[in-house]
C-alpha cells in the first residue's frame, strides 16, 4: 500500500486495519504526530486529511490510502515556517509541547475554513485538543496572531498545506 504524507509517498506493509497514527509514527518515522489516548478524546494525534482535521488514532490505514495527508512535519514551506508556527514561537505557546502538534493541526484546519475566527469559533474548533499544561490562552492568542499575518500576506494562505 502507498500512503501519501506531506506530498511524499511511503510504501507500507501492515494490517490495513492498523490506525493511521501508528503507521505514521512507526512505519513512516514521522514522530511529530503523538499518541495520547487511542480513543479520539485528546487530539494529540490530529492530522489533516483532505483538508479536514482528523484523529489518526481512530482512522484505519485502509481509509487513508489515496488521500492527501498533512502532518506537523509538512506545514512549513521548506525552511519557511507557517504563520501558526511563528505565532506559536512569538507567544511562547508550548510548555511540555506534547500536545502542540495536534493543536497546530487543528488550528490549521480552523484557519483554512475560517480565516478570521472569533473566540467561539476557536472554542468550537479547538476543544477536542487537550493540553495538560494549560496553554489554552496562549493557543488562542497564537491563532489570532497567525490569522492576522495570513490575512496580510494572502499567498501564505494557500501554499502551505493540503
Amino acid at each position: 500500500m502507498i500512503l501519501t504524507i506531506n506530498g511524499k509517498e511511503h510504501e507500507v506493509d501492515v494490517d490495513p486495519s492498523t490506525p493511521l497514527l501508528w503507521v505514521i509514527r512507526e512505519q513512516c518515522g514521522l514522530t511529530g504526530t503523538k499518541f495520547g489516548c487511542g480513543i479520539g478524546q485528546c487530539g494529540a494525534c490530529t492530522v489533516i486529511m483532505e483538508g479536514n482535521a482528523i484523529r489518526s488514532c481512530l482512522t484505519p490505514l485502509h481509509t487513508s490510502i489515496d488521500k492527501e495527508i498533512t502532518t506537523i512535519e509538512g506545514i512549513a514551506s521548506g525552511t519557511k515556517m507557517h504563520a501558526l508556527q511563528k505565532a506559536w514561537i512569538e507567544e511562547q505557546v508550548p510548555q511540555c509541547g506534547y500536545c502542540q502538534s495536534g493543536q497546530l493541526m487543528s488550528a490549521l484546519a480552523l484557519l483554512t475554513d475560517n480565516p478570521a475566527p472569533n473566540d467561539d469559533d476557536i472554542d468550537n474548533a479547538m476543544s477536542g485538543n487537550i493540553c495538560r499544561c494549560g496553554t489554552y490562552s496562549r493557543i488562542r492568542k497564537g491563532i489570532k496572531k497567525a490569522a492576522i499575518e495570513l490575512a496580510s500576506t494572502p499567498t501564505l494562505k494557500t501554499e502551505n498545506h493540503g
Partner: peptide, 14 residues
C-alpha cells in the same frame, strides 16, 4: 525548546 516543539522535531521518550 520551543522551536522544536512547533515543527514536530522535539524528541520525547515515546
Amino acid at each position: 525548546d520551543v522551536p522544536q516543539k512547533v515543527d514536530g522535531s522535539a524528541n520525547f521518550g515515546i
